[in-house]
């Protein structure tokens, strides 16, 4: 067995020590280099887009993404947020932002409430169709929405839910990820708590609201972040289900940005498009950065 790390350098041979230190240092340097390159790799496209959003359209049309800063920043963002389009003028950055927030919050809250209830039933009750219900919910993990998109669209349209928030949000909830997340967590809650609650004479409702929900706070916060980001970032479903301009979300608006890039009837609005792209990215990114520890906890514990 040989001893080889900085931890336990034998005091004797200094030459070896120096050599080793040098090696360790070089290795650390390489580690940092890889990490810096990695961070740049992740950061660079977004930074360039952000910078370009301060230029005018011609700059992009002539020479692509810009590295630097120009004077069109406020104008582009103002136009992205407040310039209306459409006959009714129903579509601007603000309305899309509002819709995105409704989708993000509505989806996250709806999903948490519904899946907590279902998980509570599955974990804390003995009833006849427990196994059956479990499998009914479980199978939804098999088929992503993308695969059954066409019939889902028909069903929602058939129910008259096209261009409604209900039609936008509820079908997205029909997947069991949240239920499994809470099921996992509830099963880790010490049994003594239930026993104690029962001795105190607490019924299922009281136990749920007074004990289980407060206990799940961190988990709720974690799931909320993940689900908010997931809802906010939905693209295909909103693209199909909202044809009414007043219902467009920011991510759905990406489609219009791309269309304006390729529209040949007038000068494409590249940089306003990039401004809107930045606005689209910002809220979920900020949430993930600021609530990092919750988010990581939620992510790594929900899917295991």
């Amino acid at each position: 067995m040989t001893v080889t790390d900085t931890f336990s350098t034998p005091p004797a041979v200094t030459a070896v020590k120096v050599k080793k230190r040098f090696r360790v240092k070089r290795e650390t340097l390489i580690d940092h280099l890889i990490l810096v390159l990695g961070a740049l790799f992740m950061l660079f496209p977004v930074v360039l887009t952000f910078m370009t959003s301060s230029y005018d359209n011609l700059a992009f049309a002539k020479s692509g993404l810009q590295f630097g800063w120009s004077d069109q920043f406020f104008e582009n963002y103002e136009r992205a947020m407040f310039e209306t389009s459409g006959f009714t003028g129903a579509i601007d950055g603000v309305s899309m932002l509002t819709n995105s927030l409704i989708l993000g919050f509505g989806f996250a809250i709806g999903k948490i409430v519904i899946s907590m209830m279902a998980a509570y039933a599955i974990v804390y009750f003995r009833f006849r169709f427990a196994t059956l219900s479990f499998w009914i919910i479980f199978t939804t993990l098999l088929l992503p929405l993308e695969v059954r998109i066409l019939p889902s669209y028909e069903v929602v349209q058939g129910l008259g839910l096209g261009n409604t928030y209900t039609g936008l949000i509820v079908p997205l909830i029909a997947s069991a990820t949240g239920t499994f997340f809470f099921r996992q967590f509830f099963r880790s809650v010490p049994e003594e708590l239930v026993e104690a609650a029962r001795i105190d004479g607490a019924g299922p409702v009281k136990f749920f609201i007074d004990i289980l929900v407060p206990l799940s706070k961190t988990m709720i916060a974690a799931l909320f972040i993940i689900m908010f980001v997931y809802g906010w970032n939905q693209y295909l479903w909103p693209t199909l289900i909202t044809t009414d301009e007043g219902m467009f979300t920011l991510v759905r608006g990406i489609k219009n940005i791309i269309q304006s890039f390729t529209d040949s009837s007038s000068v494409p609005e590249f940089t306003v498009g990039f401004a809107l792209t930045t606005i689209t990215m910002l809220p979920p990114v900020l949430i993930v950065i600021f609530f990092q520890s919750w988010f990581v906890k939620g992510l790594t514990e929900s899917d295991k």
Partner: peptide
Amino acid sequence: YKTLLMWVYAVAPPVAGILGVSLFY
């Protein structure tokens, strides 16, 4: 490093697409 390497998680796939469109223009 951790923050810098993870935040792209929150970027929507179509937004990534837009970035791709401009980088590969």
